[in-house]
């Protein structure tokens, strides 16, 4: 594991009874890198991301965030997780969510950054509305703002663009690039390959709980003898068929 490795997933398996949802996956994400986690439905991407977020126990193997076991508070301090479902407290406002995050992560002088995030995601006029009254897309934006507020070094995005309007999708892409430039490691699970293709440094492709290919887009093309201009979608289809 190199000094800049933010995430190290080592031979991780997760099974539910007889079902192996994740089967011996090893992957790394370094600081300043965006890794696309790709795969068809049921490939085990979300399960793997939940294991990395510390929500699920691993059956075998280990996961470390900057050298800390993923289930320790130190690892949680360094991790930001944005699930597909915009899970917010209906009875809290966006601003109160951010304030809770600030308290839980012991942030100081966070207000200006929180204001900026709300502004960037077009939520300033909704800062004092109950989250239960917001649309799905807006709730997703609040959740992203919550994850960005404490500036972790590892970001886990599980289908982050589902429910977002085009402006918010563009803003999210801009944020992902900014996070990479700021030195964070970003793991993005998505089905929308056209969105991840221009920004991902590497891609990890999973099926049936296993990693079947990984590398930069060029490495993947070479590995499967595809022309140099083959889009990621075609590479993905070739790899998974």
């Amino acid at each position: 594991m190199s000094a800049t490795t933010a995430l190290y997933v080592r031979d991780v398996s997760k099974s539910y009874g007889q079902l192996n949802a994740v089967d011996g996956v090893t992957l790394q994400a370094s600081a300043g890198e965006i890794v696309g986690l790709l795969g068809p439905n049921g490939a085990g991407k979300s399960t793997l991301i939940k294991c990395i977020a510390g929500l699920l126990r691993v059956s075998t193997g280990s996961i470390e965030v900057e050298g800390f076991n993923v289930r320790t508070p130190q690892a949680r301090l360094r991790t930001g997780y944005i699930p597909e479902v915009p899970a917010l407290y209906d009875l809290l406002t966006p601003w109160e969510h951010l304030q809770f995050i600030a308290l839980a992560y012991e942030l100081t002088d966070w207000q200006q950054r929180a204001e900026q995030l709300l502004e960037q995601f077009g939520l300033s006029d909704k800062r004092d509305s109950f989250s239960g009254e917001l649309s799905k897309g807006m709730r997703q934006k609040v959740l992203i703002a919550c994850a960005l507020l404490h500036q972790p070094t590892l970001y886990l995005f599980d289908e982050p663009t589902v429910g977002l309007d085009p402006q918010a999708q563009r803003e999210l892409t801009r944020q992902l690039l900014q996070l990479r430039n700021d030195g964070a490691a970003v793991l993005v699970s998505t089905h929308i390959l056209s969105q991840i293709e221009p920004i991902a440094d590497r891609a990890v492709i999973m099926t049936h709980g296993q990693t079947i290919a990984s590398g930069t887009l060029d490495e993947l093309r070479k590995g499967f003898d595809l022309p140099a201009d083959t889009p990621l979608e075609d590479v993905f289809l070739q790899v998974t068929e």
Binding site: A53, G54, L55, P73, Q74, R76, L77, T79, Y81, P83, V85, A87, L88, Y89, D90, H97, F100, I101, A104, Y105, L143, C146
Partner: peptide, 15 residues
């Protein structure tokens, strides 16, 4: 627990 508890509370470093 709600999903918000899972993501925001249990995902946080709160003991």
């Amino acid at each position: 627990a709600s999903l918000a508890d899972v993501v925001l509370l249990m995902g946080s470093p709160v003991s």
